[in-house]
Design a protein around this nucleic acid. Structure first.
Lengths: 332, 332
DNA sequence: TTGTATGCGTTATCAT
DNA sequence: ATGATAACGCATACAA
């Protein structure tokens, strides 16, 4: 089968030998280098030989040579980003893969700024998608100088440093609050999860609630039945609560019902994320969903464009924005 | 700052210059090569210089040279593996990262056997964790011959080809069925999800149910309220249902309640995965949980051992086993 | 139109 | 105890 040494994967040299051309020609043909002119006949021979041998270019060699790998690095811990991103991630991974990139989730959480950038650079990624808060000007400069073409920030607002994917948590909180007020709630509260990583988003959403109802209370809550029960029994809950997300909503609602309170008559609750469980609860749960202005395919395309140098990478720009959309159900 | 060309990341040559030694010495020191004898004094100078320059070895160059990257490849789509693996993934990712590996989830689903192996080899991974069903003997041989040290199968039973992580879906179904029978159900059914990727696990779990109750019915169900309602209204449900997992259980229960049936009096339901929502439903949901015989840390350690050549990679072996544990709640 | 030659940054062999 | 040096596989400037 393999006409070469040992039994290692075939190299471009093997393909060249099999096709009766030089290694350079193989490289030209398989990378579709527009710079080089190769006859159709030769192209065919090369492609045939490559297919026959099952040739797949060595990613490491290509990276070493070009200074840039096909890796798109997402230094985020999955748990930290919530359900939404979990759904988006799979699609994004597929989009990048079909475009020849490898999306790598890299859960390291402690490093920031230049130190983080250095550790990311070990992989010579083509792009880095990371919380904007972890970036600094020197870090961004270092990344760019080191061959990273696209540095994309994830944030709840545009970033002056890099193009950003914006998750408008404030607007989400505000949308929930507006709905609660419209359906008659007088006093509001917003849940802020105690879980590390979720708390920042919780605070942003609370800020949004307070844009609408300045006096809205803050309920710090860990995801536990016991704590939810304690808070409900303390009895000072207002008549409208934005529960941070659907799971916290379900937690709160079950505690409310256990305490003999009626939902939504005594306390109205709004969740977020619009999980399937919303339609399975009785009454069904109203939820605020994040809608993206750009699909995962668009996002991957945009980043691909930046990497390929077709588009510039501009600070302050918004690559995609996630905006709240209210899904009203409780009344049903 | 950077005493070298342009502004690219410092190389070992830069470190050597800064430390006043040769590049080879840098390599020796930083890889702790036991083969080479370097004085403490020199080691210190090298490490200082490396730290000062923020030197991080280029992964591509190292891979090209050693023939093996630090990548642990998991060619699985996240959606396909269910909640369990989603939880495990984050921990596994962290474990591997602290050991110097990069866990890469690679959602490509179509390729199998040698073709799949070839595409995976582009990254020269140190280890591949993949559904055993996608492996063939030639594929495993090719991977091993190409430098992949650990090929680990994921399966519902030990694999003759490779060491396996076993998810005992049959036992899980059987445990659920046993519980239903014990609490008084006469006739049983098991839900098999229509969703592609979940159906195989569903069938394995159904087989487990039928080990206990041979005549148990099969309910094919997509995750939709409408379809669940239709099935419930058709009225031929038995008095005990294993719902495949907790989310399907919730779907089914809400349809049952809508139809005026009592749970568990008329129809008892058991879920799986033991999600937080189990304790939030009323009545609480009994669920079968997968418990691992080995923690993510153990698993990563085991694979690390194989990669480092300390342990052999043996077909038929079981690296870790996920066994069902019944969490009884409905009676509470 | 195709081939030759070079270097990317690292590891590891072999001299010194 | 340390330094020169040769690959690893690929992409590309340049020669033919």
């Amino acid at each position: 089968m393999n006409t070469t040494r040992g039994d290692r994967p075939p190299t471009s040299v093997d393909v060249a030998r099999a096709a009766g051309v030089s290694q350079a020609t193989v490289s030209y043909v398989l990378t579709d280098n527009p710079h080089a002119r190769v006859s159709e006949e030769t192209r065919r021979r090369v492609r045939d030989a490559a297919a026959r041998l099952g040739y797949v270019p060595d990613a490491a060699a290509r990276t070493l040579r070009t200074g840039r790998s096909g890796i798109v690095l997402m230094p985020l811990s999955r748990a930290r980003v919530g359900r939404l991103a979990q759904q988006v991630f799979d699609e994004l991974e597929e989009e990048f893969r079909t475009r020849g990139y490898t999306l790598v989730q890299y859960g390291e959480r402690t490093l920031k700024g230049v130190a983080a950038a250095r550790s990311w650079l070990a992989l010579r990624p083509s792009a880095v998608l990371v919380e904007a808060a972890r970036l600094t000007r020197p870090a961004v400069d270092l990344l760019h100088a080191s061959g990273v073409r696209a540095v994309i920030g994830l944030s709840d607002q545009p970033s002056p440093l890099v193009p950003a994917v914006v998750f408008d948590h404030r607007a989400l909180g505000a949308a929930a609050a507006r709905h609660l007020v419209e359906r008659g709630s007088r006093r509001l509260a917003a849940v802020v999860p105690r879980e590390e990583g979720l708390d920042a988003m919780g605070r942003a959403r609370l800020a949004g609630v307070r844009e609408v109802v300045p006096g809205a209370a803050r309920i710090d809550l860990a995801f536990s039945e016991e704590e939810a029960g304690r808070i409900v029994r303390a009895g000072d809950l207002p008549d409208g609560v934005f529960a941070y997300n659907d799971e916290y909503a379900m937690l709160l609602i079950s505690a409310l019902k256990d305490a003999g309170l009626r939902v939504p008559e005594d306390v109205a609750v709004v969740g977020a994320d619009d999980l399937p469980i919303c339609t399975l609860m009785r009454p069904r749960l109203t939820s605020v969903h994040f809608d993206a202005t750009a699909s995962p395919a668009d996002l991957a395309g945009e980043i691909d464009g930046i990497v390929r140098g077709e588009r510039p990478s501009v600070g302050g720009e918004v690559v995609a924005r996630f905006e709240p959309r209210l899904v009203i159900r409780a009344s049903a």
